[in-house]
Every structure is written in structure tokens, then in C-alpha cells.
């Protein structure tokens, strides 16, 4: 399997990455290199092997349902570029 240039541009759009002239072609070559590795791995017979969701065979620890956090809004908002009335302000987004 390999990608074509349109697929690279589509993925870039989904990932909100702007590709300049020549960059899409460059990314295409690199991504297809990765697909080469994937093909090599896919050649291994894994039938009967359950997929791993984590490299360690451990289960997660849980926390009790207790409120432990206090209000740190002022500290957090000190590093935000723009805030107002307790809100973080971001460039206008309407879908």
C-alpha cells in the first residue's frame, strides 16, 4: 500500500497542518517509506495473537470518587493569551 498526493493533502487538512509548495511531495515520500516498514510488519503471521493495547501487561489503578482539586483558575489563566469573565478567549469558531 502507498499513499498518493491527494491523500496526503487530505490527511494534512484533517490534522490542520499547512503544507507549503514541495512539502506535500516531501511528506509523501517519507510517509511511503513508513508504509514500507508497515508492510514488512504486516508480512508476519499474527493470526491467533490478541492485539495489545499497551506494551505492559498491567491494569490501571483507579482513584476514589472524591473531589481533591481546588480552584486554580487565576494561576492557569495567567499564561493564557486572552481571558475575559473567567473564560479563555480563542479565535472565533463556528462550524
Amino acid at each position: 500500500m502507498s499513499l498518493d498526493i491527494d491523500q496526503v493533502k487530505h490527511v494534512a487538512r484533517l490534522a490542520r497542518i499547512e503544507l507549503g509548495p514541495g512539502e506535500a511531495e516531501d511528506a509523501l515520500a517519507k510517509l511511503n517509506g513508513i508504509f514500507g516498514l508497515v508492510e514488512q510488519m504486516q508480512a508476519v503471521d499474527t493470526s491467533g495473537v490478541e492485539p495489545m493495547s499497551h506494551p505492559q501487561e498491567l491494569y490501571q489503578r483507579l482513584r476514589d470518587d472524591v473531589v481533591t482539586e481546588t480552584d486554580q483558575r487565576d494561576a492557569f489563566q495567567r499564561v493564557a493569551p486572552a481571558t475575559e469573565a473567567g473564560l479563555y478567549l480563542v479565535p472565533r469558531v463556528i462550524e
Partner: peptide, 15 residues
């Protein structure tokens, strides 16, 4: 939550 009332042309975010 996104609040799309006009904050000087920006949107407000409440997390």
C-alpha cells in the same frame, strides 16, 4: 463549552 457570543470577535471557552 464554547460560548459564541461576541467577545471582541473571539469565542469564550469554559472548561
Amino acid at each position: 463549552k464554547s460560548l459564541h457570543e461576541d467577545f471582541h470577535g473571539m469565542s469564550g471557552i469554559d472548561l
